[in-house]
Amino acid sequence: MKILVPIKRTIDYNIKAKVTRDGSGVVTDGVKMSINPFDEIALEEAIRIKERGEAEEIIAVSIGVSGAQQQLRTALAMGADRAILVETEEATQPLHAARILLKIREEEGTDLVLMGKQAIDDDANQTGQMLAALWGRPQATFTSKLTFEDGWLKATREVDAGLETIAVELPAVVTTDLRLNEPRFVKMPDIMKAKRKPLDQRKLEELGVEAPAKLEVGTHEPPPERKGGHKVESVDELVAELKERGVLS
């Protein structure tokens, strides 16, 4: 089995994102960028599958600016075998990303696309599902446990009612939830080895993927600042205040 792991370059999860002055987006200049944490979980899972001997090759793919090479190098240092960067200056929306990934999947012939359920920048949670639909193959989303047997995969999914386990025939798309695994730390010797692993750079225009109509973003604004709370003297006072706010009737 060959596994394709899409990697999105996002603002590091430790950074408090700031909205630009004109509200057109968030500040990314000079801000630390990392692998989208859900994609890192997907990559970790792919590496574990390969370590168990159930996959032969892991290909990491990113769509984005030339700087995304750094995230792909990190993916290579973690354990991906090779990487592809589809270079574009434009931000890619889910349907466009799904079409590009479909194209790359066709070229590479991978049986499994293992990807984060969403990216922490736009929180769209759409690309995996759209890819499965375009590809005409089944999907297992929000996966928190993943095993393989006889050309099928078994995925435990986190749903509102609890856990649901489904069996899906390969080839398929799997999107990962937070509790699937804890990604490993990159090891120093592997950082050096990653330099020698292949990283193929392609221009988006050369792929021949048709760009869908774009969603237009109106404006961005930061969440309202939280106001500090205050202490009440008694239960009666607490109940009265909750009623006042319409929380209790």
Binding site: R73, T74, V186, K195
Partner: peptide
């Protein structure tokens, strides 16, 4: 890039 990766890890 490698040095940044070392620092981040």
């Amino acid at each position: 890039d490698e040095e940044q990766m070392v620092q981040d890890t």
